[in-house]
């Protein structure tokens, strides 16, 4: 496999799909969070690849920096929510979070 734009995009696509499947199948709340991280990382790979192989230039790298920082913020808040959920339900199984179903 040569290192060209399509190869990077394939890696990004694999990360993205793995993340989506992870989000959809895992019942552990923190597992779902890890899926989100994979999805964001797939997007980052694409940004960096475009910044190198097309005339996007540095903008792609700046975007991926922002994505990394915002992913950290997202993880902190989501983890706080998960801890709160655990405090209230004594489990982290997201299928049990059905109180709002009515």
């Amino acid at each position: 496999m040569a290192a060209d734009l399509n190869a990077y995009l394939l890696v990004g696509a694999v990360l993205f799909v793995c993340g989506v499947v992870c989000m959809a199948t895992k019942r552990n709340g923190i597992g779902v969070l890890m899926g989100v991280e994979l999805v964001l990382n797939g997007a980052n790979v694409n940004f960096v690849a475009f910044s190198r192989y097309t005339d996007l230039g540095l903008d792609g790298q700046v975007f991926s920096l922002f994505v990394i920082v915002l992913a950290a913020a997202e993880a902190a808040v989501a983890l706080a929510i998960a801890l709160n959920f655990y405090n209230n339900h004594l489990t982290i199984d997201v299928d049990r979070a059905n109180k709002l179903k009515g």
């Binding site: 290192a3 990077y8 890696v11 990360l15 991280e37 990382n41 980052n44 790979v45 960096v48 690849a49 910044s51 190198r52 790298q61 991926s64 920096l65 990394i68």
Partner: peptide, 16 residues
């Protein structure tokens, strides 16, 4: 994620 960082280094994005 660590190997993705290595891919970033390969793509000349060392700071990222």
């Amino acid at each position: 994620l660590g190997s993705t960082a290595a891919l970033f280094f390969l793509a000349n994005a060392d700071f990222v």
